[in-house]
């Protein structure tokens, strides 16, 4: 039986993201009661003024970070896909940081162990998504993302035809 992917993660829309860092601040204040991007598990990258994107954990299938950990400190929740860090086992060696293709795993500046997006499970929903002023962040499954991308692509292909149908309607 084929399986519908139900794991939701935080995804940023590059067309909407303006690089304002509100997500970083909200993340750090939710988890640490302080404003500090170094303690945020979502980070903004601004390549230039036109290219901005927030990046965080994508809850990969068969995640390389988990495989990379030499101390088995990282496990993936079967239910939500969240990467869980065993605070007692992690010694901050950073293999997982290196293994992650998205730079989504951070080393806590004081605790010296890694941390990663946990979807704000205690709050019921990711706070960065809730606060994003541009609504650039989505809490979605990869299936829904793919659907959205397909719809956008088809709309672009049939721009003229869509205008025509709107006129008739």
């Amino acid at each position: 039986m084929a399986e519908v992917h139900e794991r939701k993660f935080v995804s940023a829309d590059p067309d909407k993201c303006v690089g304002c860092q509100v997500c970083e601040y909200v993340c750090s204040v939710t988890k640490n009661k302080a404003f500090n991007p170094l303690k945020s598990s979502i980070r903004v990258v601004r390549i230039n003024q036109l290219i901005n994107l927030s990046v965080t954990c994508r809850l990969c299938e068969n995640p390389p970070c988990v495989r990379a950990c030499p101390r088995d400190a990282l496990t993936q929740s079967e239910e939500t896909g969240v990467i869980m860090v065993d605070k007692d086992k992690c010694n901050g060696c950073g293999w997982c940081i290196e293994a992650c293709d998205y730079g989504a795993i951070m080393l806590h500046p004081e605790k010296k162990i890694v941390f990663v997006c946990d979807l704000c499970k205690e709050k019921g929903e990711p706070q960065c998504v809730k606060w994003c002023p541009e609504e650039a962040l989505d809490f979605v499954t990869s299936d829904v993302l793919a659907q959205k991308a397909r719809i956008t692509a088809v709309k672009k292909l049939f721009q003229e035809a869509i205008k025509e149908t709107q006129k008739t309607a």
Partner: peptide, 19 residues
């Protein structure tokens, strides 16, 4: 105007980037 971007922490965004 190619994109309107924002400063750190801003919820308004005003910076009209022109190309």
């Amino acid at each position: 105007v190619a994109k309107i971007i924002g400063c750190s922490s801003c919820a308004m965004r005003c910076e009209h980037m022109c190309v």
